[in-house]
Design a protein around this nucleic acid. Structure first.
Lengths: 149, 149
DNA sequence: AATGAACCCTGTAATCGTTACAGGGTCAAG
DNA sequence: CTTGACCCTGTAACGATTACAGGGTTCATT
């Protein structure tokens, strides 16, 4: 099959398929006399694998490693399991971060009372306390130009 | 103050400050005779605002709009409130997505029983069902090259 | 036979936010 | 005078994907 059909069956764009070949994630397929890429169902399975993993949030480098592992039917699948577990931990961390962030944002939002910008809690919150006019939080300027001309 | 001091007080890198100027997020400061950028505390406040908003996950385009709003003390802060609320919704959506993703991944992980790759549920799950050998999910190939030579 | 439409090829640049590099100049202290 | 820390500029890298320009090929319909 040609590139567009492969991409359609794997639910991605033709450009993405070319990209995967360019970065060596899938092998370059044979070509027709006109130079067209001729894909087999083996390629299709690989691209489907990649897309499924991408949609689960794996990055292409993780996927590259997974493909190497998945290619050997007789190898133990513990290493693949390990990659997946690590990824799951990353996702848990990301969720945790977003929760904190959500909380902070909600707090800030609550401080707005619908008045003018000048008295808005959001604006104030976003200016923080640890920057401001305090000149030199931890000494620096080790030999350098003037500080404040 | 010079760029490094500004960046240190705003907790970012000097390059980031230059970047913000380049994309017009902060105004270009006056220069010393040697061509050095000379920042005031007004710039500092702006960069702090930006960094605080970034750490809450706003993108630079949202921040650009917020800066315009925040600059007018007498304007009502409802528009700013709206931007923030929209962002909060985005975060909630992202958390929800990640939860789904986490669930899917955990299910897949559970299907691995520690045997060989050939029988591993992870590999199988990642190959999905909606690609495979089915040739033409929704008719296409409107006047084009051969489908399968 | 000619035309149009849908595909194919290539190389390159865009996106987002940030960092890094190269190849210079400036300034103060040792 | 050297060292070191900073300054300047322009440009390219990251990751994943998309977009564009400027071609060529195949097939169906006029």
């Amino acid at each position: 099959m040609l590139r567009t059909e492969l991409s359609r069956r794997a639910s991605c764009s033709p450009e993405t398929v070319r990209h995967y070949e360019r970065i060596g994630l899938i092998e370059a397929p044979p070509r027709s006399t006109a130079g067209y890429r001729l894909y087999s169902t083996v390629h299709l399975r690989q691209v489907c694998f990649i897309r499924a993993a991408r949609s689960l949030g794996f990055d292409l480098d993780e996927i590259r490693r997974m493909l190497v592992l998945a290619r050997q039917p007789d190898a133990p699948c513990r290493p693949l399991d390990a990659v997946t577990k690590t990824h799951l931990r990353h996702i848990d961390e990301k969720i945790e971060q977003l929760r904190h962030l959500r909380e902070a944002l909600a707090r800030i939002l609550a401080s707005c009372e619908g008045g003018k910008i000048a008295t808005c809690g959001i604006v104030e919150a976003l200016h923080g306390e640890d920057c401001q006019t305090k000149p030199n939080p931890s000494g620096f300027n080790h030999g350098g130009a003037h500080i404040t001309r």
